[in-house]
Computed example of a mutant assay.
Amino acid sequence: MLKIVDRYIIKKYLGTFSFMLVLLSIVVLVIDVQQKIPRIENAKALDSKLDLGYFLIHFYPFWIINLVVTFLSILVFITVIYFTSRMANNTEIVAIISSGASFHRFSKPYLYTSILIALVALLVYHMILPWANIKKNELEAYTYNAANKEKILGTAPASSQLSKTEYIFVDSWNKREKRGSGFVYQKFDKGRKMTYELKASDVYWDQEKKQFVLNNYYEKTINKDNSEKLGNGTELRKNYGHAPEELFPNELLGQNKTTPELLKFIEREKARGNSNLNSYLNELHQRTSMPVSIIILTFLALSLSSQKKRGGLGINLAIGISLAFLFVFSFEALKVVSENKSLTPALAMWLPNLVFLPLTLYLYLKRANQ
Rank of each mutant, 00 (worst) to 15 (best):
L52T: 00
W173K: 04
T258C: 10
E267G: 09
H285G: 01
M1R: 11
V292C: 08
A121M: 15
L116M: 14
L323W: 04
D202P: 04
E208A: 15
T288P: 01
T16A: 09
K11W: 09
P157C: 06
S102P: 05
D189W: 01
Y144L: 15
V28N: 03
P61H: 07
N66W: 12
V27R: 05
W63Y: 14
I10S: 15
G254I: 09
I319Y: 05
P61Q: 02
G15S: 07
D171N: 13
R7L: 15
R179L: 14
E246R: 11
Y217T: 01
E245G: 10
A301T: 07
L75G: 08
R268D: 13
E269W: 05
G254L: 03
Y280I: 03
K178E: 15
N353P: 10
A132K: 11
G191H: 12
V69W: 08
P249A: 03
S181A: 15
L323C: 07
D202R: 10
E92S: 00
A346Y: 09
K366N: 12
E246D: 06
N226M: 15
L343N: 04
L351H: 03
F169M: 02
L230F: 12
Y196F: 11
A324C: 07
L52C: 04
A318H: 06
V30K: 04
I10T: 12
I97P: 00
Y280T: 08
S305M: 02
N90W: 07
A141E: 09
I97E: 02
D47N: 11
L111N: 06
Q211I: 08
F265A: 06
F59K: 01
S305G: 05
G311L: 01
I115Q: 02
M349Y: 00
S73W: 07
A88T: 03
P109G: 01
H126P: 12
N223F: 15
F327R: 04
I31L: 15
S172R: 09
L116G: 09
Y82E: 06
T360G: 00
S306M: 09
S330R: 00
S114F: 09
F299Q: 02
A333T: 10
K49T: 14
M1Q: 13
T16N: 08
E261K: 07
K36V: 02
A346G: 04
S322H: 04
N226T: 14
L343Q: 08
K164F: 01
V120I: 15
Y82H: 09
I31A: 10
A147V: 14
M194R: 13
F106A: 00
A95C: 01
L297N: 04
F19G: 08
I74F: 14
M194A: 06
D51Y: 03
K341S: 11
S73V: 14
Q34N: 13
L67W: 10
N90I: 01
R237K: 13
N148I: 07
H242E: 14
Q34H: 10
L317E: 08
P249F: 09
E283W: 05
S342K: 12
A200V: 02
K164Q: 12
R192M: 14
Q35L: 13
T298P: 08
